[in-house]
Design a protein around this nucleic acid. Structure first.
Lengths: 113, 113
DNA sequence: AAGTGCGCTACTAATATGATAGCAAATTAT
DNA sequence: ATAATTTGCTATCATATTAGTAGCGCACTT
């Protein structure tokens, strides 16, 4: 199996600039990547628990995302399961305001209909 | 052409919960979605200017992302081009710290090799 | 020794993205 | 008024990613 990890300074899906923010967006802009980070924010989870928490992610995709996020030092693995590294928790802390925002956004969207 | 917009309360790619954050992640976790929001943060851009700024996004994908983001009230279109709505600028303001973080993250990653 | 949970891999089908060509309508220039 | 250019796309097809399902090898428990 081959996993192609987005790397700083290298071209990423469609963007040849290699700018860190674009590399990050390539990493996060893959299916389930954000959801996985979100799911791990409460504490470590085993592969299968993570699979359940995400809903219905297939093991092949989960495994790919794990490899990418692990290579990017966002998460790691130990006895108790997969967990967010310091880097990962830092990233989560930047993303977490989206939770509240998403709720407001959802309410606004519903109104319009 | 058919575009399938993630909607609050509905199942999204792989997740049946319909939780706002998961719907948002589905929206943002599609190729170029984050990059498009980022690119528009400096001001309005025409379709083609946006295409250029993103690097090499194909018109078919750009058009799909635009429809999705527009239906989600993140961006809109007027004479001067596509622009972030108030909602979109709010979202951007939550994402913008990622720019600085990505640079630090990139430096850390480089060190290790 | 048999069962259970874990971290996967293999395989195939469905869907999304990438790449290129080009068109109709609006705008700008001659 | 006419021609050129720009804009916002659509169409088509190739390629890549994701989804869905089955099941294996290992470690640990019973």
């Amino acid at each position: 199996m081959d996993v192609d990890i987005p790397k700083i300074g290298q071209a990423v899906r469609g963007s040849s600039s290699g700018k860190p923010i674009m590399v990050l967006f390539d990493l996060l802009g893959r299916s389930w990547a954000l959801g996985i980070i979100w799911s791990l924010s409460d504490g470590p989870l085993t592969f299968r628990a993570l699979q359940d928490k995400c809903g219905d992610i297939s093991p092949s995709v989960l495994n790919r995302r794990i490899k990418e996020l692990r290579a990017s030092r966002v998460l790691d693995h130990e006895k108790s399961g997969y967990y967010l590294t310091d880097t990962g928790r830092e990233l989560f802390s930047l993303l977490s305001p989206l939770g509240h925002w998403a709720i407001k956004w959802g309410e606004e969207l519903q109104k319009e209909t």
